[in-house]
Design a protein around this nucleic acid. Structure first.
Lengths: 330, 330
DNA sequence: TTGTACGCGTTATCAC
DNA sequence: GTGATAACGCGTACAA
C-alpha cells in the first residue's frame, strides 16, 4: 500500500517553507524569491506532487474545466456525426498541456435550457456552444460571458465561424466553370444559420453566373440528401450537378443518383460541405468545401482559456475547395 | 447581481435542521425521519440547490467522474474515427441522470503510461480503456481495480467485448452461401486482439467451408484497405469477395476495386466490420458485421458506476450481419 | 434520529 | 518576500 498522495504540506516541508509560499511558487506568482521557487519545484518533482483539483476549485472558486454543450436530438445522432468528432479533437488540442478538462453535455433542445443553467452556475473557465438555438444562446450569454458559439447562431453571442457563403460560392463556380448548368442545392435544417449562409452563397453565385437556381430542404443527414435528390430529379431529371449543405447529405445524394441509374460524376457532379472524413471514403470520393472545424474550435477555446473572449468577439475562417472524383469533368 | 449559489447551510436553515441532517437527507441515508427528509428535499427544490461537486469531492475523497482513456496516435485520428463517437455516446448514455461526468484522455502510446498513472491517482469512479496495450492495461489494473477494457486486450483485466470470431464467421458464411469462392481477408493492426479474433474467425470458417484462405495486413484505416486490396488483386485478380476487419478498411477496398475497373457487388462482394455510420453512407451501401459498441460501453460503465466490476469480470456481446448492397447476389 | 465538531487540500487576506 | 490564519462547502465520526 503506497502512502497516499503528497499534499502541499509535504512539499512545503520538503522545501523548508510554509504552505503559502509553496502555493505561490507552484502557481507562478511573482513575489517569490528565485532560489525558494527552485527549491519548491524541486520538491514537487521529487515527491511527484500533483495539486488536488477539487481542493483547488473549492478554495479558488474556479474550476479547471471547459464545457462543451451540444444540442442534438439524441446520443446516437451525436455519436454518428463526424462533425462532433472534429470539434472534440479541436477542443482537446487546445487543452493539451494545460491540465484543463473537457466536460461534455449532449442534450436535446427541450432540456437544453436546464443544462445551460447548470453550466452557467458551475464556474467553469468557458463554454463552447454547438447547435444551441439563438434564444437559448442569448439567454445563456446574458448571465455568463465566457462563451463562444460555433457558428453565428446569435449575433450578440461571441462566435467562431467559417466563411460559409464563400464556400458555397466556390462550389458553384467550380461546377459552372466545368460546364455544369443545372446546379441544384440541398439545404440544411432551417434553424441552422450555417446552412442559411451556404444557401445564400449558392443563390448569390448562381445569380452572378446567370444560372437558374433550384433547391430543396434537407436536414444535415443522409436520408435528407437521398430524399431531396429524388425530389430534385422529379423536377429536373436532367440536372447535372448537386451542391449539398453537408457531406452526409451529399452521400445520400450520390446514393439516390446511382439508384436512379445515373453516374457520378459523368451524368451528375456532387459537391459536399465540411470535407469531413466521409468525403475521402465514398465512391467516388467526394469533392467538398473544406471547413477548418478543428482550428475554429482550437483557437476559440484557446481565447476562452486566456480570458480574451469579450462581447463582440468573433472569428471567421476561410473555406476552400477540396476537389475529388465526384466532380471531375467528364 | 443574483446572490451566489445556495449552500447546504441555506438548505438546512430553510428546512429548520442542521447541516448534517440536510446532508444525510440529500444523500439518501436511511437514518433520517421521513418528514424531515421531505422538508429538506422541499427546501432543495425551493432554493434550486445543487451540491458543489468540488466540495463534495474534497470531503469524501471520491470524484464523480468516469475516465475514458483512448490510445490513439493523434487527435485527428481520434476525431475522424466513428468508432470513438459510438463509445462516447454509449458512455454518456450510462451517465445520464447520475450527475457523473466523463473525463476524456486521448494519448499516443508513448505517453499513455503517464496518463494512466495520473488517472489512477485521481480517485475517479472508474476507467474505460480503449486500445490500451496489454502491458499497460495490466500495470494499470494492478493498482486500480475499477477498470474495464473495451476488447480483450489482457485476459486478467476486466473486459467488454463482442463475439468477433463469430462475426467474421457470419461474414464468410454469408459470402460462401451466395456462391463466392475466393474470399480474401484484410486484417487490422497486429497488436489489436479484436482484429486477431476476426482473423481467426475468418480462417476457421474458410477451413470449415473447404475454401482456401488468403489475407493481407491492414490498419483499421481507409488507406490500409485500398493498398491491401491492390495487393490481393495482384495475387488473385479473380477474387470475388473481400472481408475487411473494419468499415473504414472496407471503404478503401471498394475504392480500390472500382479503381481497377471492377463492380461491387457484381464482380466482387465486400463486407465490413462494425456496422458503423459509414456502412450506410457508401455507394453501394456496405454489408457489415454489427458490433453493439454503444451497448458494450453502456453496460460496462453502468457496472463500473455501481461498483460491480471485480477481478474476472467480463461480458461478451453477440455480433450479427447487416446485409446491404455491397454483398447482394449478382 | 439528530446535532456538534473536525478535517479534506488549497487559495487568499492579512500582518510581518 | 514570507508565514500564520481564515475561508471554501461538504461528509462523517462521535456524542447526545
Amino acid at each position: 500500500m503506497p502512502r497516499s498522495r503528497p499534499t502541499l504540506i509535504d512539499v512545503a516541508r520538503a522545501a523548508g517553507v510554509s504552505r503559502s509560499t509553496a502555493s505561490r511558487a507552484i502557481n507562478g506568482q511573482p513575489s517569490v524569491a528565485p532560489d525558494v521557487r527552485a527549491r519548491v519545484l524541486q520538491a514537487v518533482a521529487a515527491l511527484g506532487y500533483h495539486p488536488d483539483s477539487a481542493a483547488r476549485a473549492l478554495a479558488s472558486g474556479r474550476v479547471d474545466v471547459i464545457d462543451l454543450v451540444v444540442v442534438e436530438q439524441d446520443l446516437a445522432t451525436f455519436g454518428a456525426n463526424p462533425f462532433y468528432g472534429r470539434v472534440t479533437a479541436g477542443l482537446l488540442a487546445a487543452l493539451d498541456g494545460t491540465g484543463v478538462q473537457m466536460r461534455l453535455h449532449v442534450t436535446p433542445a427541450r432540456t437544453a435550457s436546464r443544462v445551460l443553467d447548470d453550466v452557467a452556475q458551475s464556474g467553469s473557465l468557458g463554454t463552447l456552444l454547438v447547435n444551441v438555438p439563438a434564444a437559448l444562446a442569448r439567454r445563456f450569454h446574458r448571465r455568463y460571458r465566457r462563451v463562444v458559439s460555433l457558428g453565428r447562431f446569435a449575433p450578440t453571442v461571441p462566435y467562431s465561424e467559417s466563411d460559409n457563403a464563400r464556400g458555397a460560392a466556390l462550389a458553384v463556380r467550380h461546377l459552372a466553370s466545368a460546364g455544369r448548368r443545372t446546379i441544384a442545392f440541398i439545404d440544411g435544417p432551417p434553424w441552422n444559420p450555417c446552412a442559411g449562409q451556404r444557401h445564400a452563397g449558392y443563390l448569390g453565385t448562381m445569380a452572378e453566373a446567370g444560372l437558374r437556381p433550384m433547391w430543396t430542404h434537407g436536414n444535415f443527414r443522409r436520408q435528407g440528401g437521398y430524399d431531396g435528390t429524388l425530389r430534385l430529379l422529379q423536377q429536373r431529371p436532367d440536372l447535372d450537378a448537386i451542391v449539398a449543405a453537408c457531406d452526409m447529405t451529399a452521400t445520400g445524394a450520390i446514393q439516390a443518383l446511382v439508384a436512379t441509374g445515373r453516374r457520378v460524376p459523368d451524368d451528375v457532379a456532387v459537391v459536399g460541405f465540411d470535407d469531413s472524413v466521409l468525403a475521402a471514403l465514398t465512391t467516388p470520393p467526394l469533392t467538398s468545401v473544406r471547413q477548418p472545424v478543428e482550428e475554429m474550435t482550437t483557437l476559440a477555446v484557446r481565447d476562452l482559456l486566456q480570458g480574451r473572449v469579450h462581447d463582440g468577439w468573433h472569428q471567421s475562417f476561410p473555406t476552400s475547395l477540396t476537389v475529388r472524383a465526384s466532380s471531375r469533368p467528364t
